[in-house]
């Protein structure tokens, strides 16, 4: 009567999964920290122009976005194909910019207001008329720090 069975030696032993939760948690925390949940769903088609002299914004929390472009396909029957301004989650008129600037400023500390950056995300085929009107409005509101959002290109991109 053998008390000891011979252990099966066929096949590789299973991987030890004891440390799996640790790894998963680590990844989880990484993604939780890096996530910035997109606030606005885009209602305009955006093809950003290319530029080589681009800079990153240091403080992401101080950036507000202004989108300009033709409405997306599913909204074109309603709004046509002319470029429109989108602020937050809705289409806006030029006059709404004023309110938008005031509201965005209220979100921040008074000291931070001069450091706020306004990122203009404009479709590259938009006519400058709209953009100029926005710039004039921003000037009137004393919101002077703007950024023309662009994609990274090396050298002179062909337009």
């Amino acid at each position: 009567m053998a008390k000891f069975h011979k252990q099966k030696s066929e096949g590789a032993p299973g991987i030890n999964t004891a440390s799996l939760p640790d790894i998963v948690f680590m990844l989880l925390f990484f993604f939780m920290v890096t996530t910035t949940i997109r606030k606005a769903s885009l209602k305009v088609q955006l093809v950003l122009p290319f530029a080589s002299e681009i800079q990153k914004i240091e403080k992401k929390s101080l950036v507000s976005y202004i989108y300009v472009g033709p409405p997306i396909k599913s909204l074109q029957s309603l709004y046509g194909t002319e470029p429109r301004i989108q602020l937050n989650d809705a289409f806006a008129k030029l006059d709404d910019l004023r309110e938008f600037v005031i509201k965005e400023r209220q979100k921040h500390d008074e000291k931070e207001v001069p450091m706020m950056t306004w990122s203009l995300k404009v479709d590259k085929d938009t006519k400058m008329g709209v953009v100029t009107d926005i710039k004039q409005k921003m000037r009137d509101m004393n919101a002077l720090k703007i950024m023309y959002s662009a994609k990274k290109a090396t050298g002179t991109a062909s337009f």
Binding site: L28, F31, A51, V63, K145, M147, A150
Partner: peptide, 25 residues
């Protein structure tokens, strides 16, 4: 489950562009 949610919700795109200062009014 949480991990998958955050992976999907993550937008990695950084905003870059040409910075300019408008002249004051």
């Amino acid at each position: 489950l949480l991990l998958i949610f955050f992976i999907i919700a993550t937008t990695m795109d950084v905003d870059r562009g040409i910075l300019r200062r408008l002249p004051p009014p």
